[in-house]
Amino acid sequence: MSAPAPLLEVADLATYFDSKRGVLKAVDGISFTLKRGEVMGLVGESGSGKSVTGFSVIGLIDPPGRIAAGSVKLDGEELVGKDAEALRTLRGRRVAMVFQDPMMTLNPVLSIGTQMRLVLRAHEDVSRADARRRSIEALARVGIPDAARRLDDFPHQFSGGMRQRVAIAIALLHRPALIIADEPTTALDVSIQAQILAEMRNLVRESGTAMIWISHDLATVSSIADSIAVMYAGRIVESGPAHEVLGAPRHPYTKGLLESIPGEAPPGSVLAQIPGAMPSLLALPAGCAFRARCTYAQDACAAMPALAASPQGHAVRCHFPLEGMR
């Protein structure tokens, strides 16, 4: 038994936010591992904790938020508790982040070329000419036409889709081992989303970069992810290989999400809907958080179910998991 060590190991991670109205448990004890080159889709609705999970992994949690418990290991190296400087070095080099709004990473008053040079020089000793050459390569790689000329342009001179490409190019500059992409295509038009989705898929495949793709959109995730973790109210409720989770969902919430997507059901028919709404993270009920909305709920659900995995690695947090729904 000598399975290769995973790239990323997250164990019992909990991120809380202290607010006037109490402690908000945005992420409450999640664990997962990510292999080298693996693309994991982290799926959930707003308030599920999926974005906070992404931020927690790279230590981008500012007060009033705090990582309350757990561990995050990158290549076996513990990240929780590292000082800000060490985390900053790590973020530029080995882990990169792509946000929904590319202006989170781009500086509006510097040309793209200058920004890319600064990013390169932050971690490597490169000459001006080398930096320029590598920047052009990086831009060309993400499908920006006429990259050499566009290097002198400022972020506002790019369209939304092109700006997101630039942000991705910057994220890829140091050939990171891990990219965390938080809803990177949500703000884009369908045709541009398709382009970026296709390019990202090819890029990670070619470079062997692992990626956590955070999204609320199951269809997008299904077209890029090897494995999927579904989050609800700060916890992972189901995870496993993409075809298992999507093809044979075992958690009632996952099943409900899949069935409520229009386009799957016959036109005009009543869509299967999950009743109610997600409970407030400030006042989560004891036991399974999905209980109140679940048609399968029984008395036993008042106790928190454990995340139990099958031999194939398909894990579900439910007392009454569904069997092979297809």
Partner: peptide, 27 residues
């Protein structure tokens, strides 16, 4: 046609077989 081809569709078998065929160029 291009718009319909661009929409990522839920690949429940996980095959990701139906490759997305994006439209070239920008709006």
């Amino acid at each position: 046609r291009a718009l319909l081809d661009s929409v990522p569709r839920l690949a429940r078998d996980g095959a990701r077989g139906r490759e997305i065929k994006p439209i070239a160029g920008e709006l």
